[in-house]
Design a protein around this nucleic acid. Structure first.
Lengths: 357, 357
DNA sequence: TCCCTGCGGGAAAGGGCTTTCTCTGCGGTA
DNA sequence: TACCGCAGAGAAAGCCCTTTCCCGCAGGGA
């Protein structure tokens, strides 16, 4: 690889001058030398060694992001928001997938710290795990002590800046909607119980049911992986245990899609025989059939806010921004069927909005 | 940030010794000093500066990956394959999204080169653009000249190692299937015509139709963005121009989903009135209703192969691995309706496989 | 004519780490 | 007893850049 001094030598100038030309330094350089340097750069196909640059400049510019999995639409949307702000400010993003493995999350914090990122953003659910939480907080505190900025998205176990979707309110919305439709036997297809996202959403849902004089017993909840197959499998278990269910709340849209698959496989009509409500409103939600009724979270906006917090001026006290959840009524939730499973309920209501473009 | 010499000072040893302990060097260090160093590391929460390390070691370990968009399921799957091999070999992946912008692709090649990656993988369609192709090849050649390894996935404009999905054969498969079902008026919802992926798939499709004595005139092709909304919009234009279409081939599954949305919005029954075939077999394909008939590409495997090529021994001549496409019959393609649009065709065939887990 | 100013350029000092080379001191052999 | 060899530790030379500091020179004002 050609180095800066190769370029300088070829151009017949000092490395200092070459550097100034290449970086567009404010210090003036004669047109003639500038041209010679640029010519040498082109001839040698010179590309500065990023590590040497980062080392020489004290300036830290990249931002580290840790998500569960970028290819999961939930995080893809958040990342889109993060990117938008970062790009505007000329920041490079280093994105790491923890695949919901706490240890890997810890490792990535170190890794990113080692890469001298200016800020760190952790997106995705927190864990109900004291030991882990303490470790993570120690690491983050150490990082902040050296001037690093930290923000978390959707997890409340860290004490710093945070952007929180209102998971609890979202759960509440889902519960209230189904109660309003007359459902009494409501099952839940939940993510891993160690995730705070799961428990928060569940808490809101439970609150809604309780307020209506209903309840949400543990036997109507099945925990599984937070993905399509987890949803399919949990739904199957739920139906096996309690065939009288008239509604299912899936704690994210991927699980909801799995739930729909299982229902279809079993010949249960949605929403005539059984209703389904999802969570997140990922883009695909409107394209499944029937289109998914779900709780929308402003995912892109969450990313935008988090990146703005972290790149903006620091605050003396941690800031927590709570972003509201919103119910999106589509076609998978309808009135509870009158009698038993054998009778189909009323027709689904007309679909609102969301027609193809 | 604590530095290595801070650690050394605190442990009362030289930086050299500290470095040896931290990196597990083969050079022996007394147990006592080792313990002191490790204690100092823990107390100071020391994390080595990755840039300084990379600079000091001549050893290059990271691998650069350029894709159109990781959050697109097509690339998410490929990336999964890349990751698997990279992780096995202890390599870090740097993933960049070009968002199908050739200039950005060029920039990322430089950026990754600057970051001293050991290898570079470009995934995603190539472009019909002489000037760009030449520039890219120059940059890649320069990189290879300094010992960098390069592989491309799904693009044939580069002369080095390549993993190619058989796009043309896939297009052929889709065409043959529809011909076999008796379709004559087949429309195509295509991605941007500048992409080689588009033209390759189209070529295969055209060949199948030609062999059957049919044809594929340009007026039955609509080009749009390679995503859901592009598919929806192109389908609308196609139907407006030619309401007699009995089948639509979408050149990727995202577009197919958009197409289904448009058809549903217009009240056209799939596959009774109109058939749809997608391409890629992304995971969601089996979950839309009706489940999507599509051409499967071994995406994960493509990633695995590419990473193996690039991390394995070099070869004197470029290696090209062509991976086969395969038709996956589900529920969106059925026999062509007998007469006109008004009459529904025969019932869809029974759905094969793919039941919920 | 002399001095000061300011501009354009180079020398050199880091930045944090790895690694080779060198040095010290010990145990063992002749 | 003298010497050799080696284990274990440190000194120092890079790795490739950026940036401060300094220097020489030319032009302008007194």
């Amino acid at each position: 690889m050609a180095t800066l001094s190769d370029v300088a030598r070829r151009a017949g100038v000092s490395p200092a001058t070459a550097s100034r030309v290449i970086n567009g330094s404010s210090k003036p350089v004669t047109e003639e030398l500038r041209a010679r340097v640029l010519a040498a750069v082109a001839e040698l196909q010179y590309v500065p060694n990023a590590h040497a640059q980062l080392l020489a400049r004290s300036h830290r510019s990249a931002v580290g992001v840790i998500v569960h999995d970028v290819s999961d639409p939930y995080f893809a949307e958040i990342t889109r928001g993060l990117q938008r702000v970062a790009t505007d400010q000329g920041r490079l993003l280093m994105i790491c997938n923890s695949y919901r493995d706490p240890d890997r999350e810890l490792e990535y914090v170190e890794l990113l710290r080692g890469h001298q990122v200016a800020a760190l953003i952790l997106a995705g659910s927190g864990y109900h795990d004291q030991a882990f939480t303490r470790q993570l907080n120690e690491k983050l505190a150490a990082y902040e002590a050296t001037g690093g900025r930290v923000a978390v998205i959707g997890r409340h176990e860290h004490s710093g800046d945070a952007v929180m979707p209102d998971n609890r309110a979202g759960g509440y919305l889902a519960g209230r909607e189904l109660c309003g439709l007359g459902h009494r036997a409501i099952g839940v297809v939940a993510g891993p119980r160690i995730l705070t996202t799961t428990t928060d959403r569940l808490a809101g849902l439970r609150q809604a049911l309780t307020e209506q004089g209903r309840e949400l017993p543990e036997r109507r909840i099945r925990y599984a992986e937070f993905d399509r197959d987890g949803g399919a499998e949990a739904t199957a278990r739920l139906l096996d245990a309690d065939p009288e269910l008239t509604a299912i709340v899936a704690l994210n849209d991927s699980m909801a899609i799995g739930a729909l698959a299982t229902l279809r496989a079993r010949g249960l009509a949605v929403p005539q025989q059984i209703s389904v409500v999802g969570f997140d409103d990922m883009p695909i939600a409107r394209d499944v059939t029937p289109a998914l009724t779900t709780v929308r979270l402003p995912l892109v906006d969450m990313g935008v806010r988090a990146m703005s917090l972290v790149l903006g001026a620091g605050a003396p006290t941690p800031r927590v921004e709570v972003l509201p959840a919103e119910l999106v009524r589509r076609d998978t939730a309808g009135p509870a069927p009158r009698s038993s499973r054998a009778t189909a309920g009323s027709a689904p209501r007309a679909r609102r909005g969301d027609a193809a473009s």
